[in-house]
Write a protein that binds this DNA or RNA. Structure first.
Lengths: 239, 239
DNA sequence: ACCTGAACACCGTTCAAGT
DNA sequence: ACCTGAACACCGTTCAAGT
């Protein structure tokens, strides 16, 4: 198989994204990737520093594809749209959140921070101060990553999955309603659904919490506070 | 080095937890694990089915160490304490959320589902119906996993970290306040903090959203709904 | 019953060598 | 300038062999 044009970084990243979509993060190896490009593994190192560089590259690509929200919309809507668009971009390429979570990739382009900047701006406008920004942003980011990882999990095996699914079935049948009364009642409702609508509802739940916190102003921004295992009537000074 | 007593499953799991705490999920290999036990890698297979079995085993251990909430406390407090205790148990052993996220482990003991059962019970009591349980539980789970993964990330490198930290510094200095005005303003506030208090505040934010949704009753439980990218003046079914 | 050595099929990466 | 082959230091796991 002769190749007219030589390889380049963009072609390597294209192929990496395609291979990862097929086989997941584990299946994305330098050797297999090279094979899809009709080349030996070592040839890749002429166009890419190492595997981390590839993962950083695809993360950067996916991040820069995030649509930005209308800057004139009210802040809760801006939060909602920014976070949802981030979710959508990452959900389309599950390798990226996976690689970020395992620290195999790191977001390292400034452009990728634009949606984050929008988010921070919306939160400032909502009235959160510097100390409220951090946990609030953390909540939004965690929701995105957590949702992606929990629903994306096993997406590699998902297609092989005959035996897997049967094992899950067996596990569910072993559940004793006497020991797990609530969970066993919820099992039918917890079966696989389209993850995006569920994410949207979860996000709205969180945003309604943000709205309540913003409305109550500083000092009372976090209801329901108190140390975890001790009862306390006083609420130690928040924000 | 002579050993009086032979190995057993519990000792293997102990050593695995210890090695993973030192070296992270990547550092936990069968060969290295065997070495810490003064044995060859292949000896482990007499006590454990394979590596997945080890990861399942430590996940099960950590999960069964989750303290349960007082069943007589009001439902929002029960949600808060259950989720917080889950967070704490997993935060003490970051390999576990990591292994679950990468699908290298799967929770497969019924006992591990007890906290989840408590959570579902609290949500039913709050008035969520079957269709509301799923996204609500998803939001709580996602918050826990997302928070753990985002703050745990790089915990392996964290101790090596001189060069790493310097690189982060350089990245932050490259940020142009003209292009990322909000984010650059927030940088000081976003610097590393103790993650647990931030998690608690994020959780309280979400719970206040749950309380609002529960109070508004079925049918209007999710404020701020509406399609993502279209502007809308009307807000369907707000609280 | 428990452990080991050699082997197989994989990894990422380096280095000298080819064109 | 770009690619390759051989090699190094790793993986998880199987299998026959040792005690």
């Amino acid at each position: 198989m002769t190749r007219r044009e030589p390889l380049n970084r963009e072609k390597v990243l294209d192929a990496a994204l395609a291979l990862a979509a097929e086989e997941g993060l584990k299946g994305l190896s330098m050797r297999k990737l090279a094979k899809t490009l009709g080349v030996e593994a070592m040839a890749l190192y002429n166009h890419v520093r190492n595997k981390t560089d590839i993962l950083d590259g695809i993360a950067e690509r996916v991040y820069s594809g995030i649509e930005r929200a209308d800057p004139d919309s009210p802040w809760p809507e801006r939060v909602r749209v920014t976070v949802l668009n981030t979710y959508r971009a990452l959900a389309a390429h599950p390798v990226v959140p996976m690689a970020l979570a395992t620290d195999e990739a790191n977001p390292n382009s400034l452009q990728a921070l634009l949606p984050l900047d929008d988010l921070v701006g919306a939160l400032y406008e909502a009235g959160f101060d510097d100390d409220g920004i951090r946990p609030t942003l953390g909540a939004l980011n965690s929701l995105v990553f957590g949702s992606l990882l929990l629903t994306t999990v096993g997406f590699t095996k998902a297609r092989k999955g005959e035996a897997e699914r049967e094992q899950d079935e067996r596990f569910l049948r072993r559940i004793d309603p006497a020991v797990l009364p609530n969970f066993s009642r919820a099992i039918p409702a917890l079966q696989a659904h389209d993850p995006e609508p569920d994410f949207m509802r979860a996000l709205d739940l969180l945003i309604s919490g943000l709205v309540a916190a913003a409305a109550s102003g500083p000092g009372t921004a976090w209801p329901l506070r108190g140390p975890a295992r001790r009862r306390r009537d006083r609420r130690p000074g928040s924000v």
